[in-house]
Nucleic acid binder design. Structure first.
Lengths: 337, 337
DNA sequence: GTGAAAGCGCTAACAG
DNA sequence: CTGTTAGCGCTTTCAC
């Protein structure tokens, strides 16, 4: 493995000159740069982040904490982060909390605390107070993507606004019997923002004089399969809502499946609207409140890198945009046609 | 940020002693160890991987290359890897090739080539010859998970065997008109192993004297939505297979959706079997060839770490296990009941 | 058991 | 435009 010193020796230059040439620092002559680059290529020189990092205190790596990778939202955010960071010359050090959850403690601090990363991006994770304290101790730029995490600056949509828009869409179509497939899952810490959404739903529905039976407030744990089960049960009963708001598209697809399986049709008998703008939503002809999740990750990545490199850290960010995408899964209820 | 030197000064010891105490090296007295640990905690000492790595040449980090994170298989493998690596004290440096694909070139070599990682795990990725050459240059332990990648040792199921088992299940039930929803997607490099599976399907079906119409060989690109579309089209035609093998559970769920939507019922009219053992398969009552994907990732992680730490590198690994899980989505065809 | 000293590969003043 | 000199924080012989 060639080092900067070997290149220097080879060329009869000093290490500093080689270092500068390699990094394209102004004050080096074009010929020297060419010489150094040629030698570096020939010797198959590979820079060492460790050495550079030790010297500068910069690792050129960002820690990304996710509660799990098995949800579209999380993996999309990570994709956006990763792509952006790659362009900026940073690496992603991944911390999947799914793993440690089983073990009881989630020691994400582990290598964050080994100064491996320059900053942290948190993706929609619920932390315990102890964990939050630990994170605060880190004392490096930190941004969360998705629903707000207390004490951490946040990039994401306004949960209440999104839910309100989704609910309102059904109301506007004429639905007065509406249900919610929410995400709250007491078993896990992986879900946040659930109650804000729930409130927005009830508020919007009630304001329009709609009926919201408590039994129509379902919990799908943000998982398609679970949503399918609970919705199937609901529609095998005697009364059911003509409109269903789902807190994620994955759950909405499960719900559509269940409604079909119950022998009813979407949107003829039941209208279903999701939230997210999942990559599958178009194929499933699902009406949804779409947001650019990858871009949210990318924005967080850009911001965090800017701060690492000295930019000021704003106190808060504008809520991310979302838009209602009307497709075939929603329609006026039967009676009002 | 406290360093080893400050602890040493604080205690009137030498850096070496502190270093040894911190790492639990034998030749240090218990009292010294206790003293050092106490001081380390008090001063909020945090070791620096960069410094340690510079000194030892070990980064305690493993590079993980994935073609995308938005598929259950990939993210599950990564979860398995991450959990295991965390236990072993290693970090995951993620390389999502999705990102660079857009840009035309996929520069995964970037920091692999900066000696940031000690080894590489590749998850079901198709590489160009140039990329493979670049990888080979890396000269560090490397293992792939999933379908075999040429030139890289592989952990995964035998694709042909799995497909054969799945097809045979339908044949055994009496199906003689069978179709395949495969994954081949000429647009992307993200899918491998597709043709092996296709062959195994045709071979098994033909051997049983089953009809395999060319138009029943569909391509779902390993995506649920796409599978839903192509299957819907198939079942809106005049003739269709009574049995459908899907190369992934995600596609199988899409297929079930489509069949329902076409007004047919699963398994009464059409039997559907998937491959993977997706977390949703039970909820969707999907028959599948299940494999422990997380464990495959974990196994790769363990092996790669062992090799980094000096263990011998076997030439090849046993194929991973899989098992047929029969659920409600498959049944004998109608006529033979 | 513990210490002293050298060095891992790079960057960063400070000179010239 | 280039070289010299110190480190960054840790590990590791080699001594004692």
């Amino acid at each position: 493995m060639a080092t900067i010193g070997q290149i220097a020796a080879e060329l009869g230059l000093s290490k500093s000159t080689v270092s500068r040439a390699l990094r394209g620092i102004p004050s080096i002559s074009q010929e020297t740069i060419a010489l150094v680059q040629e030698a570096a290529a020939r010797l198959e020189y590979v820079p060492s982040v460790a050495a550079a990092g030790l010297s500068t205190g910069r690792n050129h790596a960002i820690g990304v904490i996710v509660p799990s990778l098995n949800r579209w939202f999380y993996s999309s955010v990570v994709s956006g982060i990763d792509r952006t960071l790659a362009e900026l010359g940073y690496d992603v050090v991944l911390f999947d909390l799914d793993r440690s959850q089983a073990a009881g403690t989630r020691l994400f601090a582990r290598s964050l605390l080994r100064r491996r990363v320059d900053a942290v991006i948190v993706v929609a994770t619920v932390f315990t107070p102890e964990e939050l304290a630990e994170l605060a101790l880190l004392d490096m730029p930190m941004i969360s993507v998705g629903p707000p995490v207390s004490g951490i600056r946040n990039i994401g949509v306004n949960d209440a606004a999104v839910m309100t828009a989704a609910t309102k869409h059904l109301i506007d179509l004429g639905h007065r019997a509406v249900g919610l497939v929410g995400g709250y899952d007491p078993e896990s810490l992986t879900v946040i923002g659930a109650s804000e959404r729930e409130h927005a739903f009830t508020r919007t529905a009630s304001a329009a004089g709609a009926v919201v039976e408590p039994t129509w407030m379902l919990s799908g744990g943000y998982r398609s399969g679970v949503a399918k089960q609970v919705v199937l049960q609901l529609y095998q009963g005697l009364t059911w809502p003509t409109g269903l708001v789902c807190a994620s598209d994955e759950m909405a697809i499960g719900a559509m499946f269940a409604v079909q399986q119950a022998g009813l049709s979407v949107p003829h008998d039941v209208s279903i609207i999701g939230i997210d703008g999942h990559e599958y939503s178009a194929d499933y002809d699902l009406t949804t409140c779409s947001q650019d999740v990858q871009e949210q990750g990318a924005a967080a990545a850009r911001q965090v890198v800017a701060e690492v490199e000295g930019a000021p850290a704003p106190y808060a960010f504008e809520p991310a945009e979302f838009s209602l995408v009307v497709r075939g899964s929603t329609a006026p209820p039967r009676h009002s046609r």
